[in-house]
Design a protein around this nucleic acid. Structure first.
Lengths: 348, 348
DNA sequence: AATTCTAAAACAAACGATAGTCTGCACGGC
DNA sequence: GCCGTGCAGACTATCGTTTGTTTTAGAATT
């Protein structure tokens, strides 16, 4: 007869407990008990072996769907991010994913492209889909959620939602401390866009750090980002304008790395060398930061750690352990590279 | 009395059909029928309104879990990627996600860090979790799968798995054509690591394109990558060696952008200017390609499109439409930037 | 008044797994 | 021979939906 098909294509329905039960002449419940090693049940070893062998042979895979329905546990977390294709969010995602998988959880992802109505909608969908918890990365939201939720770099604080943030105070101190120590005294600052979650905090921290160092912030050296871009173009025009104003400065603290790259372009196009004439400090430590010429001195956000932390917190809240407060800060690190050095002429 | 809690914290069990049924004095089935607008059932408008109002009021959300169990449709796809935190894969993911969401599907992601046993294990888990199809991005695998599967940039062809790939012939022709047209005749080539999925195809296409242009490939100008790195360090030592060999060349075609960035460093460290002394062509068009100095001329893989295409194919196969063959190629594009120009001295 | 018809909704059986309870039977002790 | 004891496993209900089939009751027909 025809040779047995060696590579079964999809189509045959997978084995269920009932299939196994019929095959073995036992009841589904017994098989469930054996395969799950439920304690306190007396089933002879012989039967156990028989069941396990059959399960293997028929390639039995329990339907997690059915199990979830019955146990009311899905072991699934929903994750909301603004974008998938860009560095910052996916690095957080990477940490989240690692931690979740390690603890036996799965996750659904959805990206909302910053549309508020999509945030609401996807959150509902994810929960409807069985998500036992939510992790929101760089995502604005209004309400509480029907399941434990943790925000990474949240825009504001919402009752009941734990927030994982960067220690902005420490970050500002690291950055300004580095520039100050190199000898910089006239430093230009870039403020983030009003709609960006970090802008306000970052700026307050910078002011505080400056005060602590005895450094005066010259208002005319403070520029304000406003465009909604994720390309270096973001930083170009504002720096161009600043230069046109004629004010001089020996260092620039950019709001983020991407803007810093644009800023470096603008400085170069104005025939200023980086770092010889102007030092540039970034923020975030995106991958490109180490690759560009000159490589960028920046403050690293431990994105993977933040993700891992968020995952740990959401799981702990699901288990109803109250181990974390409603805000958890992680430590930034200074990545000193080529784009900063001592100013060429000593401060005036 | 105590004021009504305005912000309900999680804890109250969500409304089910049964809850609604009790509340309305109807049966769950009737309510299901109404809420799903099942055709061919006669329910008076008054009752329909009553049901819909109650559903709204009790904030009824159908359990997709239960529905999936019943309907044997989960509307979920499983996605396997090697890494989450790095550019290439997540851009594909972004396209996949867009397309899936648009067609009403959700997706589970898992990253396996190139460990073969994890690929197998996660694939099984995802299917067990209800995935109706699988998308494998840059992932090696051995077997067929019990559900429709589509691979993006697969390592080899597997019966029954549709493959979305870049048109390597076109890519090689674009790249070499560009260099040739600029006047380059002595071109150095970088071959990918043996374990990388594209290495073989890419090289064959380059040979073919060179032949077509009447360009001779000088074997002593061909260098071979072998390290498993995703940082520019990848391209540095091999170019250093090539330079040490004393052979001269006016252009270098790198295996990918990351290696190209390392190569540029190596060239600079050897006091060669890019592009004045040596033109460098990359491959992939990673985000950093446009940011570095000089910005990198490269071949763009339309990663999002590939993801979208993979999603479309897997859904079409789930629906049992046979619209696509077992291989689908997408078109690359030349991104001409600063790192290439005509050679400074005319070819010998 | 008895019969047929139809609208409106209830009922019942799944989907696959699991937790709790219950039964049949062999064995032992008295 | 009667009863308890344990073992080995079956039975039942349930998670929340959906689908096919009945029931019910009132209205229409004869």
């Amino acid at each position: 007869m025809a040779r047995k098909k060696q590579q079964k294509l999809h189509g045959e329905k997978p084995a269920s407990l009932k299939t196994l039960a019929d095959h073995l002449g036992l009841s589904p419940a017994t098989i469930s008990v054996v395969l799950n090693d439920v304690p306190g049940r007396s089933i002879p070893q012989a039967t156990r072996d028989r069941i396990k062998a059959a399960a293997q042979q028929l390639n039995y895979q329990p339907s997690l769907l059915a199990r979830s329905l019955r146990n009311r546990r899905t072991h699934t977390i929903g994750i909301l991010v603004p974008e998938l294709g860009e560095g910052y969010h996916t690095q957080v995602l990477s940490g989240v994913g690692d931690q979740l998988v390690q603890e036996g959880y799965f996750y659904f992802t959805a990206h909302h492209r910053h549309k508020p109505e999509l945030v609401e909608q996807y959150a509902r969908l994810l929960v409807g889909r069985g998500a036992e918890g939510l992790i929101l990365v760089d995502t604005a939201f209004q309400h509480n959620f029907p399941v434990p939720a943790v925000a990474v770099a949240a825009h504001r604080h919402i009752e009941g939602v734990t927030n994982v943030i960067l220690d902005q105070t420490k970050a500002a101190e690291l950055a300004l401390g580095h520039l100050y120590q190199l000898g910089h005294r006239s430093i230009a600052f870039m403020r983030g866009q009003p709609f960006s979650s970090d802008s306000e905090d970052r700026w307050r921290s910078i002011e505080a750090a400056a005060k602590k160092l005895g450094l005066k912030i010259d208002r005319s050296l403070v520029i304000q980002l406003d465009r909604d871009l994720t390309s270096p173009e973001l930083g170009y025009p504002v720096v161009e304008q600043l230069l046109a104003s004629g004010k001089r400065f020996s260092a620039l603290f950019s709001f983020n790395d991407v803007a810093a790259i644009g800023a470096i372009r603008a400085l170069r196009d104005a025939k200023l060398r980086v770092p010889e004439d102007v030092s540039v400090m970034g923020f975030d430590d995106i991958r490109a930061a180490a690759f560009i010429t000159p490589s960028l001195t920046t403050i690293r956000q431990p994105l993977e750690d933040m993700g891992r932390m968020a995952a740990r917190i959401v799981l702990s809240r699901i288990r109803n352990q109250q181990e974390y407060g409603d805000q958890v800060a992680v430590e930034p690190a200074l990545m000193a590279r080529e784009s900063t050095r001592e100013p060429s002429c000593p401060p005036a």
